[in-house]
């Protein structure tokens, strides 16, 4: 299983828009993907409501894990989405 830790950028945290982008990217992959706080069980990263339910705030560290084909590439792209500040999204 591959794992990365990402610090959420300044802004409003992992709310609806970033969550939708993040989940959209995760859901396209065949990997099992989770996101959560360090030391806590993660939630299914393909569930918008699950990810929004974390209520993750700007500046928090989040751990993303992926298991399956292309896990490393997937994590790299998810990291980029999470680290893009609000307003930086198209």
């Amino acid at each position: 299983m591959a794992e990365i830790t990402v610090t959420l950028p300044p802004g409003v945290g992992l709310h609806a828009r970033p969550a939708a982008l993040f989940v959209g990217a995760a859901a396209k992959s065949s990997c099992d993907v989770t996101i959560g706080r360090p030391g806590e069980p993660g939630v299914n990263a393909k569930s918008i409501l699950g990810v929004m339910g974390l209520g993750a705030k700007a500046g928090e560290e989040m751990v993303v894990t992926a298991e399956g084909d292309g896990a490393d590439e997937l994590l790299a792209s998810l990291k980029e989405i999470l680290e893009t500040p609000e307003g930086g999204h198209a």
Partner: peptide, 19 residues
């Protein structure tokens, strides 16, 4: 209530989720 913010609620039931 799977997700709750002052400005938003997400409710889950039987495989459906409504925001």
């Amino acid at each position: 209530i799977a997700s709750l913010f002052p400005h938003a609620m997400g409710i889950e039931a039987e495989g459906y989720s409504i925001l």
